[in-house]
Amino acid sequence: MANIKWVIDPTHSEIQFKVKHLMITTVTGYFKKFDLQVETRTDDFSTASKIEFTADISSIDTNNEQRDTHLKSADFFDASNFDQIRFVGTQYEIDVDEAILHGSLTIKGVTKPITLHIEQGGMVVDPYGQTKAGFTVTGKISRKEFGLTWNAVTEAGNVVVSDDIKIHAEIQLVKQTVAVNA
Rank of each mutant, 00 (worst) to 15 (best):
P10V: 14
P10A: 14
S13D: 10
E14R: 09
I15A: 03
Q16T: 12
K18F: 14
K18G: 15
K20N: 06
M23T: 09
T25S: 14
T26Y: 08
V27F: 13
Y30S: 09
Y30H: 13
Y30Q: 10
K32H: 10
K32F: 11
K33A: 08
K33N: 06
D35R: 14
L36R: 04
Q37E: 09
T40P: 00
F45N: 00
T47V: 07
T47I: 08
S49K: 02
F53E: 00
T54N: 02
A55Y: 00
D56F: 07
D56C: 03
D56L: 10
S58L: 12
S58W: 04
S58I: 13
S59G: 09
D61S: 12
T62V: 11
N64Q: 11
R67C: 05
L71D: 05
S73A: 15
S73Q: 13
A74K: 09
D75E: 15
F76R: 07
D78Q: 14
D78M: 14
F82K: 02
D83I: 04
R86T: 15
G89Y: 04
T90S: 11
Q91I: 08
Q91V: 05
E93F: 10
E98R: 02
E98S: 12
A99T: 04
L101G: 01
G103H: 01
S104E: 08
T106W: 01
I107C: 02
I107D: 07
K108D: 07
G109Y: 04
G109I: 12
V110H: 12
T111Y: 07
P113D: 04
P113F: 06
I114T: 03
I118W: 00
E119T: 15
Q120Y: 04
G121P: 00
G121A: 09
M123E: 01
V125P: 03
D126S: 14
Y128H: 11
G129F: 08
K132H: 02
K132P: 06
G134Q: 02
V137C: 03
G139A: 10
K140F: 06
K140V: 12
S142L: 08
R143M: 04
K144W: 06
K144E: 13
K144R: 14
G147K: 01
T149Y: 04
W150V: 10
W150D: 12
W150K: 12
